[in-house]
Amino acid sequence: MKIRSPRYNREIPQRYRLEAAKDVEGRIYFPPRVSYPGGEKAEPIRLSNRGKVITYTVIHVAPAEYSDLTPYPVGIIELDDGARITAQIADVDPAKVHIGMRVKVEFRLLRAEGEEGLLCYGYKVVPE
């Protein structure tokens, strides 16, 4: 299903700049929320752009939007500030991906909404 402008636009700060929030106890919220559990205050932060692979898979059967990329690795990445994100692991031989692998965040085109629709950008990670 195509992503339309309003939905895409709301996520830009998180997708482009890894904007997140951190509460007084050091808990990181990504994406930032409208309000925080227990009414806690949280400060805006930007997530670290380096981290390591916690777990991963290589997708062989993908939704149409991503099927040109198969087989592509996806992992859960623990960034150096402790936050975790799910991200594609690009520019790598899928057979070389491993738990503990160091990665860095890069800005990539995630999907194109057909030949005429939006170009949807965001983060992926690549080997450090």
Partner: peptide, 16 residues
């Protein structure tokens, strides 16, 4: 360029 790279993505990385 990889399928997920274009002028915009490379500009962002070079600019960072």
């Amino acid at each position: 360029p990889a399928p997920d790279q274009d002028t915009i993505t490379m500009s962002v990385e070079a600019s960072r």
